[in-house]
Design a protein around this nucleic acid. Structure first.
Length: 165
DNA sequence: GCCAACGTTGGC
DNA sequence: GCCAACGTTGGC
């Protein structure tokens, strides 16, 4: 029996990497995360096939813009090795990696963004982390019911079954 | 181990 | 551009 998938929300600034960028490249390693809680989710909990709400932050408006899926599990974030890169961390090495990432693949772009305003006001989304005050974490777990509700609000054609594994 | 200072995130 | 809410750093 396959284990049940989990659900996540991942934030990205569209100026840096948007849902359109993900659609174009198909798959993308989620590099550059330098927050321990977010790292732990990627390193310890995110599995191939898990559903991902792709969130545009620092956008007008901010909100969930589409769907992705975890396509590869935890592996070291090599951008931490590059001394000239902005994600460099001298405490990270090949022998003792400190930072990890997953790879995500494009599933679909919503017909319309599910804005943060909608996320906050929808009764079906009570308690969703991203809509709560002060919640800045760039990778967050999402409850199944919230995940399916956001898909409905986005009028996505994707069925929940897409995320079985 | 505490906590002030500093840096970052991200909505507004 | 402002600033609230965190997270990290480093002195002690």
């Amino acid at each position: 029996m396959a284990s049940k998938p989990s659900f996540w929300l991942m934030k990205s600034e569209p100026d840096a990497f948007s849902i359109d960028d993900l659609e174009r490249v198909g798959r993308e390693p989620w590099d550059g995360v330098r927050n321990y809680r977010a790292r732990n989710f990627m390193r310890d909990e995110m599995k191939v096939g898990d559903g991902v709400l792709f969130y545009h932050s620092n956008a007008k408006p901010p909100g969930v813009i589409g769907l992705a899926r975890v396509s590869r599990e935890s592996f070291p974030d090599h951008t931490a090795l590059d001394p000239d890169g902005k994600y460099h961390d001298p405490k990270h090495s090949e022998e003792e990696p400190r930072w990890f990432m997953v790879e995500v693949e494009f599933v679909e772009k919503f017909q319309s963004i599910v804005s943060l305003d909608q996320l906050k006001s929808d009764e079906g989304l009570d308690g969703m982390l991203v809509a709560m005050k002060g919640q800045r974490l760039s990778i967050q777990p999402v409850e199944r019911s919230h995940f399916t509700r956001v898909i409905k609000l986005g009028k996505g054609a994707t069925k929940i079954g897409t995320f079985k594994r």
